[in-house]
Amino acid sequence: MTGRHAAVSVRREQSATRGGRMDPVRTCVGCRARASRSSLLRVVVRDGVLIPDEKAVLPGRGAWVHDTPECIDNALRRRAFVRALRVSGPLDTQTIQHIHQRNG
C-alpha cells in the first residue's frame, strides 16, 4: 500500500486513548509488529552508544522496540538498530544489554 491509502490504513490502526486522542503507531524493530507508541521503548544513539530513551524526548532518530528479552535480542542479532537508526559502523550495544539484563 502506498500514498493516500497507506496513510488511511495507519490512521485506522491507531488505538484510541483517553479523551478521544489517538496514540501513534510504531513498528518494533525486533519482531516487526505494529504497536502503540506507549507500549514500545525508544532507543537512540549518543556518541556511538545505543541507549534507551524511556521518556522519548532525546534528540535524533529513534528506533522503537518492545521492552522484552525476545524483541531486544532479535533486534541486536539482526542488526536492526543499525539499519533503523541509519548509522554507519558498529554500535556499542553493551549499555542496552546491561540495562535489559538488570531489569529482566
Rank of each mutant, 00 (worst) to 15 (best):
I72V: 15
A35R: 13
R26I: 04
A7G: 04
V8Y: 05
N103Q: 08
P24V: 06
I72L: 15
E70K: 14
T17F: 01
T2K: 09
V57D: 01
V49L: 05
H98W: 05
R42T: 10
N74H: 12
M22I: 01
V29A: 08
G89L: 01
L76V: 14
H98A: 15
G30I: 15
H5V: 14
M1T: 15
D92S: 11
L58F: 04
R11N: 12
V87F: 02
G62F: 03
V45G: 13
P69D: 09
M22L: 13
C71L: 04
T93F: 07
G60E: 08
S36R: 13
R21V: 13
N103M: 00
T17I: 12
Q94S: 15
G60W: 07
D92E: 07
R21A: 13
G89P: 02
S38Q: 10
D47R: 07
P69T: 09
E13P: 00
V65Q: 03
I72S: 01
S88D: 06
R21M: 08
C28H: 10
H100E: 05
G104N: 08
R77Q: 07
A84F: 13
R26T: 03
A75N: 10
R12A: 09
D92A: 11
I72C: 05
H100V: 07
E70G: 12
P90H: 01
V57Y: 00
E13Y: 01
Q97R: 15
V43M: 09
E54A: 08
R78K: 13
G89C: 04
I51C: 05
A35D: 15
V25L: 15
A33R: 15
D73L: 07
A33T: 14
P52Q: 06
V29R: 06
V57I: 05
V43G: 02
V82N: 12
C31S: 13
S39R: 10
S15P: 00
T17D: 08
V10Y: 01
T2N: 13
A63V: 11
Q14K: 07
P52F: 05
F81C: 10
T17C: 06
M22Y: 00
R18S: 14
Q101F: 05
R42S: 10
R83T: 13
S15I: 13
H98I: 02
T27M: 13
P52S: 04
V43T: 02
A6R: 13
P69A: 11
H5E: 14
R78N: 10
A63Q: 09
A6C: 02
G60C: 06
C71G: 04
D23Q: 11
R26N: 03
V25A: 12
V43L: 03
H100Q: 08
N103E: 10
A84Y: 12
C28T: 14
M22D: 03
R26C: 02
L85R: 05
A80P: 10
D47M: 00
A63G: 07
R86I: 04
K55V: 02
V8T: 15
S38R: 12
T2W: 02
R102V: 09
T68G: 07
R61L: 12
T27H: 00
L50R: 08
E54N: 04
L91N: 06
H66T: 05
H100S: 09
S39P: 00
V8Q: 15
L76A: 09
